[in-house]
């Protein structure tokens, strides 16, 4: 029991930073991001017996966090998260522009970009995390990159539609 607690504490130390960054970029609010990370670990501790792969808990923790983030976004009517108030520390002007572009990206596109670029997940791992086919992962990631590229060069009020809502 106490060994289990110690192992969980190691997970907190090891993963809270990455989970925070995911929540930060998804929600655009540092305080809310910290609350969601806290909630994630609380839920994970309560449901730890459901974890199958104890040697690799990160995808499971990330799944809990993403669920909490999208539930929060759902309460807000799935609106794009607001731009973070302050640019990240020591950011060059180029990175500030990138941050602004990222903040204007749809949360769904931002999410898949985070999985790939921040966590270094492979297509297969993203497919497992999002529970979508591999081909869909590739196409969504490609669209998200293209959208980010367009926003990077576009004026601040440009809004890129969410890829799930296709116009026919």
């Amino acid at each position: 029991m106490l060994g289990e607690r110690r192992r969980f504490e190691q997970w907190v130390r090891r993963y809270h930073g990455d989970l925070y960054r995911h929540a930060y970029w998804l929600m655009g609010d540092p305080t809310l991001a910290e609350e969601l990370v806290q909630e994630t670990f609380y839920r994970a501790w309560r449901g730890r017996r459901g974890l199958r792969r104890r040697d690799e808990p990160f995808p499971w923790l990330l799944g809990i966090l993403r669920h909490a983030c999208f539930a929060e976004l759902g309460r807000r009517g799935r609106q794009a998260a607001p731009l973070p108030e302050e640019p990240v520390e020591d950011a060059s002007p180029e990175l500030v522009d990138l941050q602004r572009a990222l903040a204007r990206l749809d949360p769904g596109q931002r999410d898949i970009l985070l999985l790939h670029a921040l966590h270094g997940m492979s297509y297969a791992e993203i497919s497992e995390q999002l529970e979508i086919p591999l081909g869909t992962v590739m196409s969504r990631l490609s669209r998200a990159r293209a959208a980010l590229r367009r926003l990077w060069d576009a004026p601040d009020d440009t809004v890129i539609p969410f890829p799930g809502r296709r116009r026919r």
Partner: peptide
């Protein structure tokens, strides 16, 4: 550049402590 930007934000120094205390 994207990875550098995404990795930049840091949580509060006491977040880890607050998480552990909240369990």
């Amino acid at each position: 550049r994207l990875r550098q930007l995404l990795s930049a934000p840091r949580p509060s120094a006491d977040l880890e402590r607050r998480i552990l205390e909240g369990l």
